[in-house]
Design a protein around this nucleic acid. Structure first.
Lengths: 219, 219
DNA sequence: CCCTTGTGTAAGCACACGCTTACAACGCTA
DNA sequence: TAGCGTTGTAAGCGTGTGCTTACACAAGGG
């Protein structure tokens, strides 16, 4: 509330603002602010623990606006997940998707959208009816892209096993924070995982050439 | 509330009961009933979504008793997890631990204590401060037992990666319920996973002899 | 018999939550 | 300037939660 008030004041006051200052009464900007704030809070606390009041405060916005723009807390979550979610799947070539996603998990701490999205996913899974369809669809898209890599007849199962590993690693690092995994070097983890997965997804390599193509992380 | 009343009546009425009927005013039995009910409800709904009223109703007990016996909902959770948790770790020889745990995950649906415990773990992870120390300690015990299997210098990291896979598979099946993994044959999953893990934990086999020793599932 | 101790219960307190409502301020067009 | 739709706000409603309190019943000892 303190921060919210301060933010608001900074805006309503006509102080000469720099490049990226947003005008008051800009619906689009407000919507975007809410979405950004929601993503952050959902990622930090999980769906249930995150409160609409928190999100509103973080966005510097009255909480009633959230319901005007999105209707409900649940709808907000689906919006957050669908918005940035499909981008990575469709923008990354399938043969790099797994390693990219894995490195995204490992690069936690940066404010990358990808990391946030996965953190939201992981932290919101526990609550059964948070956004089951959305969550499952997103997972299915990943798995389908991965399944195309393998020529085995149970390629889908194999792909989902790989996905499961991804999720588990993310869970250990982001949510549980168990050492030494939590602070292990990304390259070490990627090396071990890709190595083991060559047995699971044998048709082509999991990455096109054993972790050379992607060098610095997903962004 | 309905069920609770009915249960209570069945007890207070002096109808000639069979073998396992508990006497009224038996503190030990009441405590055990609460613990069982709590395990079930936590496993089904997760920590946050489970309510003390639900647990009390399922145990056929007044909810105030829960606080008399355990103090708080959080304390109840830790009690549930620590009670049955360490048994599997200490009762299973390390070289079979991984496969046993994996089969435990895959055998979901049975009312085995192991399955319940892992379901509780998985569903309660999302809420950050549910029982972080307890949860982490339990995971560390598993990982330590697994780490002893590998002779590599980063054996602990490798063990935790295996643990992470376990968790991820459990998440996919128990919580997300994603197909085809959710209803895949346990033997298929175990086969794939153990096969891939031979690269991760190379010193000795993950199971003593490639999934022959355990034939029908953990119980 | 009463009194104490252990066990169980009904009722409710305080609070945080998602969501709603009634209203104010802005900015546009006429 | 007046009217009007859009954008923002303050206050609060209803509900469900964890947890507490004040009391009822059982059993044993004086």
């Amino acid at each position: 509330m303190d921060e919210q008030t301060r933010d608001r004041d900074r805006l309503t006051d006509g102080l000469g603002d720099g490049a990226a200052r947003h005008r008051p009464r800009d619906a689009r900007e407000t919507r975007a602010r809410i979405l950004r704030a929601a993503g952050a809070v959902f990622a930090e606390r999980g769906f249930e623990a995150a409160t609409v009041r928190d999100i509103a405060a973080r966005a510097g916005v009255n909480q009633a606006l959230i319901f005007r723009y999105f209707g409900s807390k649940k709808a907000l979550l689906t919006e957050v997940m669908t918005e940035g979610g499909r981008e990575q799947v469709s923008n990354t070539p399938p043969d790099r998707l797994f390693e990219a996603a894995l490195r995204g998990v490992l690069a936690e701490g940066g404010d990358a959208d990808t990391d946030r999205l996965l953190a939201v996913y992981l932290r919101s899974i526990g609550s059964a009816d948070a956004a089951p369809e959305t969550v499952r669809e997103l997972g299915e898209e990943y798995a389908a892209a991965l399944a195309a890599l393998s020529s085995a007849d149970d390629g889908e199962l194999r792909a989902q096993l790989a996905m499961a590993w991804l999720l588990g690693i993310g869970l250990m690092r982001v949510v549980v924070g168990q050492e030494p995994l939590a602070s292990a070097a990304p390259d070490d983890v990627v090396g071990h995982v890709l190595d083991a997965l060559e047995r699971l997804l044998p048709a082509r390599d999991v990455s096109s050439g054993k972790m050379k193509p992607i060098d610095a992380g997903p962004r």
